[in-house]
Design a protein around this nucleic acid. Structure first.
Lengths: 284, 284
DNA sequence: GTTCCGCATGAATCGATAG
DNA sequence: ACTATCGATTCATGCGGAA
């Protein structure tokens, strides 16, 4: 039952990526360290040098991604000197020059961004989720992420009269009546490109963790079971754990050995539990 | 009581703008025709020529805007050949080269986005609201747009421990503890940079590009009474009517004479009612 | 007077068909 | 091969007429 592998590799992303095979990954989901002048855990990549640092990495990512694969990049430009810095815009343009297709920009609306006050701006409660592809045709499993239908329809459908339910419209071209009856029993609709997810307040050390539901959504949308997911900036390992629980293979890369150790420890725990489960099955 | 003027000027935006004085406008809110949209009425500007058309206009806008003024540009790039086109990104970069500061990007989340289903993308339910300024210090009246506090925050506050309430944070830069205690007992809170507004779908001839509440929000946020608001692509006149009702002077520019006439007609109606009101007051 | 329901209408995008 | 036009798809909203 268990062919899924979950790997965490320690090292600089660019170096480690070079050891991975061409066209071997179905989905890349990552949230790279944000541009920052401070030299902290990640050494800091100032805004004006950010792309210089990131573009060689995105080139390797393009190599390891399958032609039908997708790259989701969670990023938001910083405010520098009172302005939104343009390095993310420039990154998109440069990545297209590398051969990436900029297919879509999803918005992650962070519902619980904490209140604060600045004289000339409001709380920043959204981030970009940039979708890049190698080819126009890529794998996408839309049914895996359908959402509950809006309240308007629930009300409407619950109250539909018998005649409405039976009506086979032939009146005019609008097709509405027909559709309404088609919608009976319909509970879900396709989502949009705006994601409403709360940030999780983890007690963990890692700062830039995104909530489980974020990689979960993209893993369901762009991969199927036994596919391979890559997170070149694994951080606290969210992407890996979600991938594993959804039965996708995954590879994480992380430069900070402390994080690598924590991830490895959690993976060992899970492995132990799995073995225990198997033994229990065998006994039973 | 009535010094507010509301003007609609007919003609090409670039030409008409040249007749306006330097540093005379407090706020520009506009939604120019998007690339290739509204070909029938506006002639259509193909994506690869869009900035060539728009940049001379933004240059004039910069001239007429006061140093403390703000320019809000509602725009969203279209999909061409399966990709998000980059002309809006390039526009931001080029406008900075013109001397604009790209202060902020608000997100307009449209709940009722256009329906449809495609194999490779979901419905597009957001648009960019780009904020540009001439100077780092600009007029902003944040208190005018405070919103009711969200339930999540209410819960959070109710559950706060006494230590949390007293805590004077110094740990990290988040300001969490400090702000929380400031907050207790308040009913309203400053909004974020994500706006949730549905488009208004009227049965009328020209549906407005944006709902009243959109210019209303920005007019309250960036102007005070008797200030001057400019919309160089007035369309159905939403910005003008909202500005008038909020007692701001306003100037609209519109190239389609049919729209200009309708706006003028509405303005005349309002004027007539005002006079009627005054007479009634006089009698009473 | 309420509430309820029918309906038109979207800053859309893709793929097929036609010149 | 490259462009132009057209049909199919889909769902939230407000208005107006009806119960």
């Amino acid at each position: 039952m268990d062919n899924i592998t979950t790997k965490i590799l320690e090292g600089d992303s660019l170096d480690v990526l070079k050891t991975l095979s061409d066209n071997s990954v179905d989905l890349i989901v990552t949230s790279p360290p944000y541009a920052d002048n401070r030299k902290n855990t990640y050494g800091g990549h100032p805004p004006n040098k950010y792309n210089e640092w990131f573009l060689p990495i995105s080139k390797e990512l393009k190599r390891v991604l399958k032609p039908t694969g997708t790259f989701i990049l969670n990023i938001k430009e910083k405010v520098t000197d009172g302005e939104r810095n343009t390095y993310v815009l420039e990154l998109i343009i440069k990545m297209r020059e590398q051969g990436w297709l900029w297919t879509e920009e999803f918005i992650w609306h962070k519902k619980n961004s904490f209140p604060g006050k600045w004289p000339n701006r409001f709380r920043d409660s959204w981030e970009r989720l940039l979708q890049f592809n190698k080819e126009k045709k890529f794998a996408m499993y839309q049914d895996a992420v359908k959402v509950e239908i809006g309240d308007w329809a629930k009300d409407r459908l619950n109250k539909l009269s018998e005649t409405d339910k039976k009506r086979d419209n032939a009146k005019n071209g609008s097709g509405f009546g027909k559709n309404v009856s088609n919608w009976l029993g319909k509970e879900t609709v396709y989502p949009t490109n705006v994601l409403h997810l709360a940030t999780e307040c983890n007690n963990k050390n890692h700062s830039a963790a995104f909530p489980n539901s974020l990689p979960e959504w993209f893993i369901k949308l762009f991969t199927k079971e036994n596919d391979t997911v890559l997170d070149p900036f694994a951080g606290s390992g969210t992407t890996l754990f979600v991938a594993q629980s959804l039965r996708r293979n995954s590879i994480g890369i992380e430069i900070v050995s402390e994080y690598v150790e924590e991830i490895q420890k959690s993976l060992n725990e899970i492995e132990k539990n799995n073995i225990q489960t198997k033994i229990n099955y065998a006994i039973a």
